[in-house]
């Protein structure tokens, strides 16, 4: 009976589309998220998630396709952040000030949209904020999957130099790695994947898709490539678990189910392993950490 229940959703087209788009988006988020966590740029991702909301609302208010606004806003803001910060790593205070203002702008656009357009859909704002993956159409799902696949490919291409630049910026720069350019490039890719993830889980929740699998992967292994693969794999599995769970329990929105799965996996990693050398001395463990990763890189 339970097998039947689990197999039946695959026959519905809306579920197939959600699964196609969701898997690709989750894989991209897992890969990008790993680097975001490693580079201590989770707050930047948080900012991006809110910016994507304003972008989408602006596009709706002016009558364009929602995705146009999503991508334009996130990419423009990542470039702005990269330009503002030293070595393409912006300051938290600047990020906070900029994105809280942009969020205010989002509040303005949502009012503009709901009051000015006669065809306005009152729940559009909620859809952007919290996602509506079961409502994704076949065409949109294909485009989302293709873009996400492109993001994955890009991240894998720049993975090695980016890892080097992340762990030891000075040495990487001395060895001729274009550190600044990589920073820019990576933030742009992060922007694209944030815009993608907004379509699946919504702008407020995409942070969980970026941070939770990566955090879990980093807790489970010290080896960088293994962690990268694990992060992507976990993200995809959590996405599937969330989709099936929310199909089984219709009262539960898919975004919540996905976040719950991601959080549960992350929480489970706290029970499985660790605090061995780590909790004793933060400084030492960090150095040891980097050493292990560097050795892994050189091998």
């Amino acid at each position: 009976m339970s097998i039947l229940l689990a197999a039946s959703p695959l026959s519905h087209p809306f579920f197939q589309h959600a699964l196609l788009a969701g898997s690709a988006i989750a894989a991209a988020s897992g890969l990008v998220g790993y680097f975001l966590v490693l580079r201590a740029q989770v707050f930047t991702a948080d900012a991006l998630s809110h910016v994507s909301f304003t972008g989408a609302m602006a596009a709706l208010a002016f009558g364009y396709d929602l995705r146009l606004g999503l991508f334009t806003a996130t990419i423009a803001i990542t470039l702005l952040f990269a330009a503002l910060g030293r070595k393409a790593r912006p300051d938290d205070i600047v990020i906070g000030s900029v994105f809280s203002w942009i969020l205010g702008l989002g509040a303005f656009f949502i009012t503009l949209y709901t009051t000015s357009r006669s065809t306005a859909d009152g729940t559009a704002g909620v859809g952007v904020l919290f996602g509506s993956i079961f409502g994704i159409s076949a065409g949109r799902a294909t485009v989302a999957a293709l873009v996400a696949a492109g993001v994955c490919l890009l991240v894998l291409l720049i993975a090695r130099p980016l890892l080097f630049a992340t762990l030891d910026e000075a040495v990487a720069a001395a060895r001729g790695v274009p550190v600044r350019l990589l920073g820019f490039g990576f933030l742009t890719v992060a922007g694209i994947s944030a815009a993608e993830a907004t379509q699946a889980v919504g702008s407020l929740l995409l942070l969980g898709l970026l941070a939770a699998p990566a955090g879990a992967a980093i807790r489970l292994t010290d080896r960088p490539y293994r962690a990268l693969a694990l992060s992507a794999g976990l993200a995809v599995l959590e996405m599937w678990a969330g989709l099936f769970a929310s199909y089984a329990i219709p009262k539960m929105p898919p975004s919540f189910a996905i976040m719950a799965a991601a959080t549960a996996v992350y929480a489970a990693t706290f029970l499985i392993r660790r605090p061995s050398t780590r909790s004793r001395s933060r400084c030492h463990s960090l150095i040891a950490d980097k050493d292990v990763i560097r050795r892994g890189l050189l091998r």
Binding site: D46, L205, G208, A212, A214, R278
Partner: peptide, 19 residues
């Protein structure tokens, strides 16, 4: 408790509670 783990944790807590 850790360096980059902390921000991942904060982010996860935030996303889960919003969800």
């Amino acid at each position: 408790n850790g360096d980059h783990e902390e921000s991942a944790l904060t982010g996860t807590v935030q996303a889960f509670l919003l969800a």
